[in-house]
Structures are given as C-alpha cells and as structure tokens.
C-alpha cells in the first residue's frame, strides 16, 4: 500500500475522524488563535451583550454569540484551546517524567525504594484532588502554577504504577541478565535497556491522560480555583454562562461542546495508539 492510500484509509477510520476533530477543535485554534479569532477575547462590548449565535437570531459577526460583557464566545473558545493544550502538554510531560522515573526506580531497584514510592502512589490516589486544590488555592489563590501542580499530583501515580509493572516484567528478561554479565551499571540498565522498551506505554498513557487533564483543568477553573479570570479557559467559559443557562444557553454550551469533542477524540486516538504501539494489550 502506498503512503497516500494508507493515509486516506486512516482518515476514513474512526481514529482518523477523531484525529481530524482534534486538529480542528484543539490544535489549529491553539497554534493560530490570533489569526483565527475574529475578535479580541478580552474586550468587552456593552452594546453587543448576550447576542445569540448565528442561525439562532444572531449575526455572522458573532458566530457563536456573545456573553454578558459582549465578548465573542467563538474567539474566547479559540483562545481557550491554547490553555487546554498548553496545560495538558506541560502537566502531562512533567507528570510523566516524575511518574516514569519513580516507577522505574521502584520496579528495578525494588526493596525500600519500591515500598516507599508505591505507598506514595497509594496516598496520592487516596487524596481527593479537588479538595487538595481548594486547600492550596485558599493559601496561594488561583494560578497557572497551581493547576500544573495539581495535574502532576493527580497523574504521576498512573505513570509510576504502569512503568513499575512493566519494569518488573522486563527486568526478569535475559537481555537484562546479559547486560549485567557485560558489566552494565544499574543506572545504565534502567536507562538504556528498560526505558526504551516502555516508551510506547508511556506515550499511550500520556495520550489517554490528555482527556483527564482537560476535564480536571476545566473543573478547577469552573470552581474558580484554576486559571484566574478573565483568561478564557474552557472551564471558566462554562462557568460564566452558569446563571444564564436557560436564557443564553450558548455561553456555556459551545465551550462545553469543545471540551466534549476534544476529550472524546483524544480517548479514541489513545485507544487506537495503544493497539498500534502496545501489542500486549491488543485483544486477539
């Protein structure tokens, strides 16, 4: 099969559709927000308050309507994608690095390291992340750093557990014994022998976490302990329309739709990626 044929076949499949949705809803808006957005997302305009969307009695000027302050919902969603993508990328990257490193150490060195790290995982899983965020926000106030911290805190354990489990299996294989016979240090075995064999797992897990993180970020913002206003984060946009949901439904509806589409397509893509990269979990 040629490259073009393979590409068109992928685009017509369910993961292909998910990929296209993701590019349209998240990636292009995040990268080119300033070019695409017709209006300044922060600029209030009293004269055009609560305009309904186009086709619902509105005009093409505000295609998805405006909010209470007359800000363009479409432009705010476009700019919100930057924060959704940015926070999930940074948070997952850091969470994956922390979780992978600790999982590798726990699974490979065992003993005291294993016991300590795994208990720490249990504790983070047992702590309600929202309450933690509330507590922290009451001390420091809502901020980007706080969101990133909560994201890392919530997801590192998943990486640590999965990486540890795979490391436990890999360290028994003969190629690890062979590396020892050659005189490789523990550090080198972890870095050069074990890690390359779990990269696929980490990538799959990271992709599947994007949905979790976007929801988490939206939840925190919705509760007012995430990204501070007036930043157009998706969770904040949904929260903005909360009181007007009956009369001006579009303020909450379209950001909510963006969250839904993004999370769904990320999850579909993650599952597809797992089938390709991680043959062990493939059902035969």
């Amino acid at each position: 099969m040629g490259r073009t044929a393979r590409l068109s076949r992928f685009m017509l499949s369910v993961p292909g559709a998910a990929f296209i949705v993701l590019v349209i809803v998240l990636i292009i808006p995040a990268l080119f927000a300033d070019l695409i957005a017709p209006h300044d997302p922060y600029k209030a305009n009293i004269r055009s308050r609560l305009e309904p969307p186009f086709l619902f009695g509105g005009t093409t000027e505000f295609i998805l309507g405006t909010d209470r302050l007359g800000r363009d919902v479409f432009s705010r969603i476009i700019h919100g994608a930057k924060f959704a993508l940015g926070i999930s990328m940074v948070g997952i990257l850091l969470g994956a690095v922390v979780g992978t490193a600790l999982g590798l150490i726990a699974g490979f060195l065992r003993g005291w390291w294993d016991a300590t790290i795994m208990r720490a995982v249990d504790i983070t899983f047992a702590l309600p992340s929202i309450l933690l965020a509330l507590a922290l926000a009451s001390v420091s106030g809502p901020s980007f750093e706080l969101v990133i911290f909560v994201v890392i805190f919530v997801i590192w354990g998943y990486f640590a557990r999965q990486v540890r489990a795979e490391t436990l299996a890999l360290r028994e294989l003969d190629f690890v014994a062979r590396a020892r016979v050659l005189g490789a240090s523990e550090y080198r075995i972890m870095w050069k022998y074990i890690l390359p064999n779990i990269v696929n797992t980490i990538v799959v897990l990271g992709t599947l976490q994007i949905g979790v993180v976007i929801i988490l970020e939206a939840t925190l913002s919705f509760l007012g302990i995430g990204i501070p206003r007036p930043t157009p984060a998706w969770g904040l946009l949904v929260a903005d329309g909360r009181q007007l949901i009956v009369s001006s439904w579009w303020i909450s509806f379209f950001p909510g739709l963006a969250i839904l589409l993004t999370v769904m397509s990320v999850n579909v893509l993650g599952d597809a990626l797992r089938d390709v990269l991680d043959p062990k979990s493939r059902s035969v």
């Binding site: 294989l173 003969d174 190629f175 014994a177 590396a179 050069k192 022998y193 390359p196 064999n197 990269v199």
Partner: peptide, 14 residues
C-alpha cells in the same frame, strides 16, 4: 554468556 531464548536475550530497541 549466551542464553536460551534469543527472543528474550536481545533488547528489542537496540
């Protein structure tokens, strides 16, 4: 050393 299983004794990523 040379081990039994040539599928397990070579790192698949090297």
């Amino acid at each position: 050393a040379v081990f039994q299983d040539p599928w397990a004794s070579l790192s698949p990523r090297m």
